[in-house]
Nucleic acid binder design. Structure first.
Length: 576
RNA sequence: GCGGGCGUAGCUCAGUGGUAGAGCGUCACGUUGCCAACGUGAAAGUCGAGGGUUCAAGUCCCUUCGCCCGCUCCA
């Protein structure tokens, strides 16, 4: 932490789980952090706006990310190879060629058909439905049974959703009670060695004698044709399942004024693909050398099934993503490097303590192409005692560049002039490869929400019980200047100091001043808004040129020289 | 999409079918001597929206929208 650019506030010991989300939401509205979108029209489900303080808070978070990831990556630290980390930005469009989303897998992956069981009110993904298929005639070979699964002609004898075909297969083998319930006699595994993840073969006894049966995924086409005949996985009764319904998680739009079906485009569900699509241009035009990163920030859209939990699962949200490209042999080292740095970074802006965790995904949780994924997770009041994801750091291998190379027909490999056997003239021969990619992908709106939840503090012993303890670096209001009373020359001194602080720090956040009402009330207002420091001009200021500096978190006061105030603020904000 | 809860001033909430209320906050004026001080005054509401019952609806009924909680979902 010694190279972190700013000093840290006192760690907050309060667990998020003990804070009230209702209180936090009320304060967010009252102080202008978060408003409901389109509120005067009744609001619109899944969308939230930021008020003045929220907008500045989010801007500070985005800029902290930009500074520490792009301009001076990792606070100037060296990467695993001993060189400084190098990153460049791009800014890519929300709307891309529709093929981008075919290549990335989002159009397929974000269109999961769902089925509801009308009896039990349960919903499941249609492609998770596993059936036990008992053919009417004899089907003794793997191929013959497989044909039934692909044929869409055989209605399953029973269905399941909580497991892979192989797991269901094992359950049927081992569970006598289940077999009885399904009207089956003895069962044993057959075709040893041919059982696999997506189908498995059983030898069973039924009323009609010895049969061979298959366990496999129920094809979608079969569900559409026979869904009134397919038994519910929850009751094994037919007739209670709905038709498979598309849940379109991609936002669709139309390009051009005479929009028709040919003009369909999609709003991006993540900013990362913009980087992969421009990878070749960045390499060709900016003299970057692997290893290096490309950062991209901006708005993304997902038609969440159920937007919930304040701004946590909004349908429109901002991301800050870095795609870091490296040689395959160094990728695991870089993955660990970024994983650890990103955790440290969130801690550096105030998410201290046990509410923040780094969670390494289990092997079976990983995408098929990933060699490692970690989440930085925060214990929100609404997830406690569980955690919600703020950022995912994924080892994506060469998956994305390979996909786009395949779909676009454009070569996306990289010629590394510093690798390969030395040539007779001493220079390396060079090596051509598709770089591996490490992706730290942060949610900015979730980050803001975590900062709000972490900052929110209720302290009944204080005259103003609600305090937003933002880290000075991200606090939307940086400082406030008050005349103790609105006379005797104090307002003039306050005005001068306010002007000076505004000139020096007004780019980082608001500098407030207020001469109305009691000093306690003015302090209290700043506590709720999360202003870390208040400077008060009093009678002594006129005599000895000192002011009171009041600390938000403790309420403690110290006197400092009037002309030292800008230096004091600069040091606390880390901008000298 | 299902089930439950809620929706009255900026916030927190009272409100028995019969005049729209309180506290806090906000603003103005006065006062002021370091923690939501005090006094006086003011602004602020289509009672979420639409329809119905009634002489009369914030209150009863129906529909709808939004928020919260639990399911479901989150490549």
């Amino acid at each position: 932490m010694s190279d972190a650019p700013v000093s840290s506030p006192a760690p907050s010991s309060a667990l998020s789980g003990t804070k009230s989300m209702d209180d936090i939401m009320a304060l967010c509205k009252r102080r202008g952090f978060v408003y409901q979108a389109s509120e005067i029209y009744g609001g619109i489900n899944g969308f939230w706006d930021y008020g003045p303080l929220g907008a500045q808070l989010k801007k500070n978070l985005r800029e902290a990310w930009w500074e520490d990831m792009i301009m001076i990556p990792c606070w100037g630290r060296k990467g695993p190879g001993g060189e400084r980390v190098r990153c460049v930005p791009v800014e890519t469009r929300i709307i891309q060629h529709p093929k981008v989303w075919e290549a990335s897998g989002h159009i397929a992956g974000f269109n999961d058909p769902m089925v509801d069981d009308k009896e039990t009110k349960q919903r499941f993904r249609a492609d998770h439905l596993v059936g036990l298929f008992v053919p009417p005639g004899d089907a003794s070979t793997h191929d013959e049974l497989s044909r039934y699964l692909a044929d869409d002609t055989l209605v399953p004898h029973a269905t399941f959703v909580d497991g892979s075909p192989f797991e269901i297969f094992q359950r049927i083998l081992e569970d006598k009670v289940l077999r009885k319930k399904l009207g089956l006699g003895n069962a044993k595994a057959c075709f040893e060695g041919q059982t696999g993840g997506d189908k498995a073969l059983l030898e069973i006894e039924t009323r009609h004698g010895q049969r061979r049966a298959a366990v496999g995924y129920v094809p979608l086409t079969l569900l559409q044709k026979f869904n009134d005949k397919i038994p519910s996985p929850f009751t094994q009764m037919a007739g209670s399942l709905t038709q498979p319904r598309q849940f379109n998680l991609m936002f669709k739009t139309y390009i051009g004024a005479t929009a028709g079906e040919d003009d369909i485009a999609y709003m991006r569900p993540e900013t990362a693909q913009g980087v992969f699509v421009q990878f070749k241009n960045v390499v060709d035009t900016t003299r970057v050398k692997v290893p290096f990163g490309i950062g991209n920030t901006g708005t993304s859209f997902r038609n969440e099934v159920t937007p919930r939990n304040f701004t946590f699962r909004s349908r429109e949200f901002d991301q800050a993503e870095l795609e870091f490209f490296c040689h395959p042999s160094e990728s695991v080292e870089w993955y660990k490097f970024w994983r650890d740095f990103r955790m440290e970074w969130w801690q550096s802006i105030g998410l201290k303590g046990e509410n923040l965790i780094l969670r390494e995904h289990d092997k079976d949780e990983l995408s098929h192409y990933s060699q490692g994924t970690s989440d930085v997770e925060y214990r929100f009041p609404f997830t406690a005692p569980g955690f919600g994801e703020l950022e995912g750091i994924a080892h994506r291998g060469d998956y994305d560049l390979t996909q786009h190379q395949k779909h676009s027909g454009v070569k996306l490999d990289y010629f590394d002039t510093e690798r390969g056997e030395p040539l007779p003239n001493g220079s390396p021969k060079g090596e051509r490869y598709i770089p591996h990619c490490i992706e730290p992908a942060a949610g900015l709106d979730r980050g803001v929400l975590a900062l709000l939840c972490e900052a929110y503090t209720k302290d009944a012993s204080r005259p103003s019980p609600e305090i937003m303890k933002f880290h000075p670096r991200i606090a939307p209001i940086k400082a406030a200047v008050f005349p103790l009373v609105n006379k005797d020359g104090m307002p003039e001194v306050a005005e001068k100091l306010h002007g000076e602080l505004s000139r020096r720090f007004g780019r980082q956040g608001f500098i407030e001043t207020d001469a109305k009402q009691s000093i306690g009330k003015r302090y209290a207002r700043m506590d709720e808004a999360g202003c870390p420091f208040c400077f008060t001009i009093d009678g002594d200021t006129l005599k000895d040129q000192t002011v009171t500096c009041r600390d938000r978190d403790t309420g403690a006061q110290q006197r400092i020289a009037l002309d030292q105030v800008p230096a004091f603020v600069g040091e606390k904000l880390g901008v000298g």
